[in-house]
Design a protein around this nucleic acid. Structure first.
Lengths: 346, 346
DNA sequence: CTGAAAGCGCTAACAA
DNA sequence: TTGTTAGCGCTTTCAG
């Protein structure tokens, strides 16, 4: 008899205690009570609660999240999606977006949410956003960058509240966005170039994405007002391609300009390198201003004059607005003030 | 009567078709059939399958993943966890890790998995890894960086197969790791410094993490063999703190050295900046070699001589090994060859 | 304060 | 080829 019992018990031993019911049996209570105890529910006797929690720790028990999420109809997970729209591989602001992502992870963790990350190529999948939202895996979504998907995002926003987007704010748009005032940033950058003596300015960067378009628009505002000439040199595709296009433009047309407004720091770095290769002095022959203020911006030689974006404030804003939307509030967009950081290139 | 019926039906209308059963009712079949049709199960009649799929599209129906995952006992999600161990804020290789993360996202997506990201401070939560694994939310886990958690990871590896770690390979370790041969990288870097004329070398970086320790060990191998002196200048805590420590060391001791092996490119950049501030010529007075070969490394002035790590190959290796482990295979670790890239600093 | 019971929405035997 | 049925493991009324 004793042997039989052993034989029956053994097979169970290795798999330990996997379910609420397992633990309930050990504790001599019902599954419901265990559930309440583990949730810290005040309806349960303090003693039993402590006892069950101790047991759970002892057996390394953790409730199955899938079951819990299914039952409670919420997941505790926020989706973060990066559309790689106008560009196959990670676009220019890549480094910027990745830093933003890091802060988002910290911020969400602090608020008790998990983060599900997805990178998509919208061209390959029309329903990239609906699919993520409708997957039932996330309670809300943060979109990093509007890419060339402004319209798609607008459509989704009409029927789905818990979504916040990092990007540019357009007059009258329907989706909730957090981002710098790109147009103002463009103005600040261009004013600086002109103040430093530039009169013939080139804007370097893809003008298709709204963020960049706004930066260019800001540059136009100022250039036309202050009588400087401004031309857009639109780059395309991959970072390598961008680099080539910049190199091509500079080698052919550098004599026609005396100032560069780079749509991002990454582009500014590429331009600096090319200017150096061409032995064109920065800022003496050509002034240069970037955008983003990546950590590395202060470490180039000469250090890069650029427009600072507060990434951490951005991440906090995204999360805070999303949490409010999760509660059903319809929030306003948040436009963060950019700041000119004068260093050595203009 | 008719009014009553309306009143009962209305409230349901707005929420459209939310479950398999809803769609089954519309299609006039059973939930089981819908499930099979949507899964592309070949057991279902081609006609009904197409009809149901069309209906699903029409109504924008997507099956609830939580229910599916619970039922199938697998989630289709891979956890990616970044332990911030020896350091509160993102440690030195931050930029490197973030790039790795980007490639991981692409790689996992391609294999049909979703990615759940979590950053943790192990000191605050002893069970950081068990908790993630035991959450029931992920099928497997990729740990980015061993940080100071080598032992913890080893323990977990004993009882949990589907885990792969980015980091350093130690003789006889039990967890499956993917990473560069850091010791070899350290040797290559130091050989280069000495070949460039350095004889008194400083290693800059926190030697606590195994990856960095191995890089330092490689440096020791070479220094002792080739008769160069080598000292470790261990940095700590945050990037800002690191920067201060580097500045402190250099301003006090720069005359005592003629070569620097920086544990990462980020550290190398900080050192370059400080050297420049002190008006110490690189590479004339002090040679400098980094580690990682971040994209920006080629853009500093002078461009950084460094040890190249193939990040994409690393990401692919991590995912491939994990998928094999998911199938029950016990895989070997993967050690990637580092490569010296000679540029302008040594 | 605790137990019993009814599902959350889906999938996979098992029947038909 | 399709329908029926029995849960996956958890939470939460509703009783007691």
């Amino acid at each position: 008899m004793i042997e039989d019992e052993k034989l029956e018990i053994r097979p169970k031993a290795p798999r330990a205690v996997r379910t609420l019911t397992d633990l309930a049996n050990i504790a001599g209570v019902s599954a419901g009570t265990v559930s309440r105890a583990l949730a810290g529910n005040s309806l349960v006797n303090t003693k039993t609660r402590d006892r069950i929690q101790a047991l759970a720790r002892e057996y390394g028990f953790q409730p199955n999240q899938m079951a819990s999420k299914l039952r409670r109809q919420k997941t505790g997970v926020i989706g973060v999606i990066i559309p790689l729209g106008h560009d196959r591989r990670q676009q220019i602001s890549d480094s910027f977006f990745m830093t933003l992502l890091g802060h988002l992870a910290d911020e969400l963790t602090e608020k008790g949410y998990d983060l599900m990350l997805r990178r998509v190529v919208p061209e390959r999948d029309e329903d990239w956003l609906d699919r993520f939202i409708g997957s039932g895996m996330i309670d809300g979504v943060i979109v990093i960058g509007q890419s060339n998907q402004f319209e798609r995002i607008e459509e989704v926003a009409d029927g789905y509240l818990p979504m916040v987007v990092w990007g540019n704010h357009q007059e009258g748009q329907r989706h909730c966005v957090v981002g710098a005032d790109n147009r103002l940033g463009g103005r600040l950058a261009t004013e600086r170039l002109i103040a430093a003596g530039a009169t013939r300015i080139a804007f370097l960067g893809d003008t298709a994405p709204f963020e960049f378009a706004a930066r260019f628009a800001g540059a136009q505002d100022v250039a036309s007002r202050l009588g400087a000439s401004l031309r857009a040199v639109s780059t395309h595709l991959s970072p390598e391609q961008t680099r080539k296009e910049i190199a091509g433009f500079l080698s052919r047309h550098h004599t026609e300009i005396d100032g560069i407004f780079a749509a991002s720091d990454s582009i500014a770095f590429a331009a600096m390198q090319e200017l150096r290769r061409l032995r064109i002095a920065v800022p003496d022959a050509i002034k240069l201003v970037g955008f983003d203020d990546l950590p590395i911006a202060s470490q180039t030689i000469p250090p890069l004059t650029t427009i600072h974006q507060d990434i951490m404030a951005g991440a906090q804003g995204l999360v805070e607005l999303l949490l409010r939307r999760l509660k059903g509030e319809a929030t306003e967009s948040l436009v963060l003030p950019p700041r000119l950081v004068v260093r050595g290139t203009a």
